[in-house]
Design a protein around this nucleic acid. Structure first.
Lengths: 385, 385
DNA sequence: CGCCTTTGTTCGATCCTCGGCGGAAGTTGG
DNA sequence: CCAACTTCCGCCGAGGATCGAACAAAGGCG
């Protein structure tokens, strides 16, 4: 049955979170006796989960032996599958990236082809860092569409033909596989890397489309059907003429997404097909592109203003392809949010660009895998085995 | 230190939730030995928290003794403070209402006056049911404004002059007091009474203003500053001429709140000052009022459509004064939400009127108090004392 | 009326945790 | 340089808590 708080799993959680680095810290934090803590730590060391390093600084007496996660022997993978790319990051148990790779890959080729590619890349990366396949403990995968998280099956994803209801985890045999929406894993990665203290965070990805990952009480909020955060089809005022691929009109994505901006630029005679082209034009100083990006920021801000009132986050992070010109995007977003949201909600709100950048999704997916492995229940299972 | 899962507190949680009604159930659910369970239950009985009732039906052997919460000896209060009223409900530990009362009371009179009134009503109700003041274990209070939940202090409430930062719990001396926004406690009450199985629920109160209580993963989501759910000032399209008391224009509340509808009706020459007047006109069959309520439903639906995409709830409950004409309000809301939200999010979504009715807030506040008292940590503290 | 099933209690065996003790390893002060 | 002090850590016996077997209680079934 479920063991004590102060179990081996809880002890490891404190160590991995950095809340405790010595046996004394652990005793103070858990309230357990020093001898009990020692016994727990011994078990964790025996299983290769924790290692002792050289003595730390003395505080007037014998210096404590430092404890930290044992970063050899284990490996974790974070996979970022986009519409046209595949990134794989190999990480150790502390979240440090050991190796990574990226290549073009069309997700429309279907699950067998794509997952075979991922599998081969995994072997390659493991080889490069000299760890055996058996060291791989868990894999996190972010995909560009809704997923039933509990089973790892994509749920009617619009841009992933052939993936509907495909049981992704089964493809990898015994290893634990966690599949989630790409925006969710980006939110997770950003939160753990840049804002670990924030209890409520929104990660807004502005790329071809627009999506949002939600961290509530430090954990991902996926909603009842796993479709939470799909803000691309929220209505914005004053654009009823803009039709959206979803069938409605005036969707945020249809007026402020990268594809929408590119379309409007090409109507103005400029050559732009994708969000990347928009970024290039802005960076080249094109005033039309700049104006449209700013305007998109205001529209996104209008939607976010409502969500700030509703959800009351303390951080909003802007990521995705268009965040490469974030100074212009953010100007519009901030302007609208701070004007249209309630003072109580905006008083301690900060709106910032993503710090994790291009690898946000792969890192977040890896973190998803690591946190699953490090969950107290799982660790207790391992230790008591 | 923190005790075992399977502690007395956990055992009581299972009993109060109805998950277990016999010692055998408890043994199965917790995995503890029968003898251990017996010892836990004995401790709970000794403290007056659990009682044994007559034997249940045999399943082929000795019939088990039924266990349930001991509903004597303890009492809990739920208080609903509105702008112009005060309702107090006295409940036993199972959530059953023992006695209640309601009177007009202006919250603007300030905390001392209002809380003295509440205190006197509490004594009165306790007297009526014949329980001593000492039996009162905890008080939950819902107030019409934002609250810093951890301290029980109202946070710049717009319609509660004199209450800003007032330490409400201290007024009641030793008893535990929990203060929260009225919409939050209504959401809690509705969830526990009508939709205990739903993991994500929104309770929308449509009265003079418009607010929303959020249940995520079965618990209240209050946000970073405790202001989550304030949807009354989200912008709706096509009403930029409607000014709001918050300083912005086109706020949902300024076009679809009870006060706004009443104002528009009086512009049409009808006599309406408040949401109650609107309800009366609709019930009298006035077509103008009916049209405006339906239109308000569509506007509320527009905002909710966005929130459904973002939050992905499985239930939306409509409450508040205007829900007394909910058939008309709901028609507009459903129409818009099912048209403007994503199919994945609406597929299992149900939108229903409140079932708890006028006493929703007082009941919810009482439940807040009861759940606080029944929390495993608190029970363990009591049992180990 | 015996036998079976299920429930509940009692009690000794076992396992876990606690905390004191002593040794280890450093700092401080003379 | 050494003694006294502080902190850290392993060892071990004492004290609890939990377990499970044995037994008693209470009803169903043939």
């Amino acid at each position: 049955m479920t063991p004590l708080p102060g179990s081996a799993g809880d002890v490891l959680t404190l160590i991995s979170a950095g809340s405790a680095t010595t046996r004394s810290d652990l005793a103070k934090l858990t309230g357990l006796a020093r001898s009990t803590i020692s016994q727990r730590v011994d078990a964790l060391i025996e299983r290769g989960l924790v290692e002792e390093t050289e003595s730390g600084e003395s505080t007037g007496g014998r210096p404590p032996r430092q404890l930290r996660l044992h970063t050899e022997e284990h490996a974790f993978a974070g996979v970022d599958l986009g519409a046209t790319h595949c990134r794989v990051a190999l990480m150790d148990i502390s979240g440090e990236v050991l190796a990574e790779c990226e290549d073009g890959l069309l997700i429309g080729e279907g699950p067998e082809t794509v997952l075979a590619h991922v599998d081969q890349r995994l072997d390659h990366l493991l080889d490069r860092v000299g760890r055996p396949r058996a060291a791989l403990r868990a894999i996190g995968i972010g995909v560009p569409g809704p997923v039933e998280f509990a089973t790892g099956r994509p749920n009617n994803p619009p841009i992933m033909p052939g993936w509907n209801d495909y049981p992704v985890p089964e493809y990898f045999g015994g290893v634990e596989v966690l599949v989630d929406n790409d925006v969710n894993v980006m939110a997770l990665g950003e939160h753990r890397n840049a804002f670990p203290g924030a209890s409520h965070l929104l990660f807004v990805k502005v790329g071809t489309g627009i999506g949002c990952g939600i961290i509530a009480e430090g954990t991902l909020h996926r909603g009842a059907q796993g479709s939470a955060g799909d803000i691309g089809h929220i209505r914005v005022s004053g654009h009823d003429d803009a039709g959206c691929r979803c069938g409605n009109s005036a969707c945020l994505e249809a007026v402020a997404g990268g594809a929408a901006i590119a379309r409007r630029l090409s109507e103005l005679g400029l050559s732009a097909e994708s969000g990347g082209d928009v970024v290039a034009l802005v960076q080249a100083g094109d005033t039309q592109a700049l104006r449209l990006v700013r305007e998109a920021g205001r529209l996104i801000g209008e939607v976010l203003a409502g969500l700030v009132n509703f959800f009351n986050p303390e951080v909003i992070v802007i990521g995705g392809a268009l965040s490469r010109v974030h100074e212009h995007l953010l100007a519009g977003i901030r302007e609208t949010v701070y004007r249209r949201s309630l003072p109580l909600a905006t008083h301690h709100l900060s709106i910032t660009p993503s710090r994790t950048g291009i690898n946000a999704a792969a890192l977040g997916a890896g973190i998803l895998a690591i946190e699953h492995y490090l969950s107290p229940d799982n660790i207790n299972r391992i230790v008591n085995a």
